[in-house]
Amino acid sequence: MNTEANATAGLHASLPHRFIVVEGAIGVGKTSLARRLAVTTGAELVLEQADENPFLERFYRDPRAGALPAQLYFLFQRARQLQALRQQDLFAPHRVGDYLLAKDRLFARVTLDDEEFALYEQIYAKMAVEAPQPDLVVYLQAPVEVLLERIVRRGIGYEQSIDRDYLTRLLEAYTGYFHRYDASPLLIVNAAEIDPAENDADFSDLLEVIRRTVRGRHYYHPLRSGDPLKALRGG
């Protein structure tokens, strides 16, 4: 990456990060948060286009039979989008995204059986996708009950058949993944009790924590009252 471009971007930045990714399980509110971050900071927003996946509905209807085409569609779609981003990287504006490419493999491990996953892995390796590296990942966490409630509340038709077991396994996969994650600075946010996409105070507290998180791994357990930075513990 071009250091001069970086230096200029740094000077002009309202946040020190050029590329922030918000991650988390279905229903935790990552896309809403990513949208609000983009508008508040003037960053371009890169969203995955789950509702364009023609196999997704079939997958939710019949997870066993519908998983492989849904996974492969996502893999191609995400790879194409991220690779295009990388090609524009040099003069890129600031960006906010709502997924990591790693998410694709994480879901594949949960949804596919062993033979399918082996096939998926071969395709994944062949594609050799070079995704742009975020300089901060904000990982939103919430318990299964909270996710289920939020999924019902937002009412996307095909999501309504998501069951507790599937969500529990996804959550475990996310937890395991971020437990080992060290590819970029990481902010793990307990989002069970806050709603930063809708609540102004929750959002500005979180924004301040994001602004200060430029390296390492941090946990943010927002307290309903008090200084949010007191709840920020470095790792």
Partner: peptide, 15 residues
Amino acid sequence: AVAAPVTAPGSGWQP
């Protein structure tokens, strides 16, 4: 079939 989507690949949402 979707290789030429409505929005160019990687083209994001602009604020």
